[in-house]
Amino acid sequence: MTLEILTSDALSPLRHGFFTRRGGASSGVFHGLNCGPGSSDLAEVVQINRARVADAMQVTPEALAGLHQVHSADVAVVDSPCTSKPQADALVTATPGIALTILTADCQPVLFADNKAGVIGAAHAGWRGTLDGILEATLDAMEAQGARRADTVAVIGPTISQRAYEVGPEFFDIFMAEDPGFARFFANGQGDRLQFDLPGFGLFRLRAAGIGQAEWTGHCTYDDPVRFFSYRRSVHAGEADYGRLISAIRL
């Protein structure tokens, strides 16, 4: 099956993509393009999937730069292909031929580019990382490599949408302690439950940071099991594990 790759005109002409689960070699709960080495999927099958992504990005598998993601606000700068994975939640490079990759299964994959300066970035932005400043830290790291945030574009890929993201009052309290104005990213749900707008919050943080352009592709990972893996959906279904989607960008 052919890979399905979602792209954005805002990031063109750079080679990039938010890969769906279509076109992969995995089976069972991982059916499709599971690119997560940290999953319990067969390692050799994950390698096959990642090789297909590398081919689509026109790089070798070794040039797929990735991270040991920990929901932090830490950014790693990459200047050469490397198989080691730094503990961080965003990557930045000004080196052609390296594909920056992020793995997600509900969190926001965010691809950045200042095409004029030749600097790109990729961030894994869950609620914790977004609240702690991973998006702003990515822009700072890009500027250190010569980018201008006014010339930078960021696109949020498939992520869990507000209608599917139910949270409790303790979650809400964390945001209120940071800024009471963040209440606008919550809607009332059943009982004491609330619905959190993760992509809306991500767009707000990007725009408040002075980025030139920011958008969300509009795809919800939870609502479309044919195309996307979802951690939350897997929990609700009582599944033992879940696949990881990959997003990538290169100069």
Rank of each mutant, 00 (worst) to 15 (best):
L64F: 08
R244A: 13
L91H: 10
I48T: 12
D79Y: 01
A209P: 08
L251Y: 04
S247M: 07
P96E: 00
A125M: 12
M142W: 14
A51K: 09
Q58W: 10
G133R: 07
W216K: 10
T60Q: 10
G28P: 03
L131K: 10
S234W: 04
L198T: 10
H68F: 00
V29D: 14
A94H: 08
A65L: 05
Q213Y: 15
S230A: 07
V119G: 06
L14T: 10
M1I: 03
D79K: 01
M176R: 15
C107L: 05
Q47C: 08
W127M: 15
A122V: 10
L67F: 02
F172H: 09
F182N: 12
E44Q: 15
H68Y: 01
A65M: 09
G189D: 08
E239P: 05
I160K: 04
T20H: 13
L11R: 08
G202W: 14
R128D: 01
A208Y: 08
V78G: 11
A73R: 12
T2P: 13
A177S: 12
I249P: 03
A113L: 02
A141Y: 05
Q162F: 07
S84M: 06
S27A: 09
A43M: 09
T93S: 10
G212D: 00
M57A: 15
F204Q: 15
I246C: 11
H124D: 06
H16E: 06
T20K: 13
H236D: 11
F185I: 08
P180W: 14
V92F: 03
A209M: 02
M1G: 05
T221F: 12
T130Q: 13
G210V: 00
C107E: 15
V29E: 14
V46L: 07
N34C: 12
F182H: 12
C35T: 06
R52P: 07
H124V: 04
C107D: 15
G200F: 11
P61V: 01
G202M: 11
R128I: 06
D224R: 09
M176E: 15
L245N: 13
R250H: 02
T101H: 11
V110T: 08
T217F: 02
H68G: 00
W127Q: 15
T152S: 01
E136M: 02
G118A: 03
L33V: 09
D132F: 11
I174V: 13
V235E: 13
M1Y: 00
A105L: 02
F228K: 12
M142I: 13
E4G: 14
G202C: 10
D241W: 00
D132N: 15
V226I: 10
L111S: 09
V59A: 04
L203E: 06
L64H: 06
A117M: 04
T83H: 03
I160S: 07
A56N: 14
G202Y: 15
A10H: 14
A51D: 07
M176K: 15
G181Y: 11
Q213T: 05
L198F: 08
R163Q: 13
P225T: 02
D140L: 02
L14C: 07
I48S: 08
N49L: 06
L103I: 07
L135Y: 15
L6F: 06
F228T: 10
Y165A: 06
C107Y: 04
L67N: 04
R21P: 07
G66L: 01
V59Y: 07
V235G: 06
I174C: 10
I249N: 03
A240S: 12
C82I: 00
F229H: 09
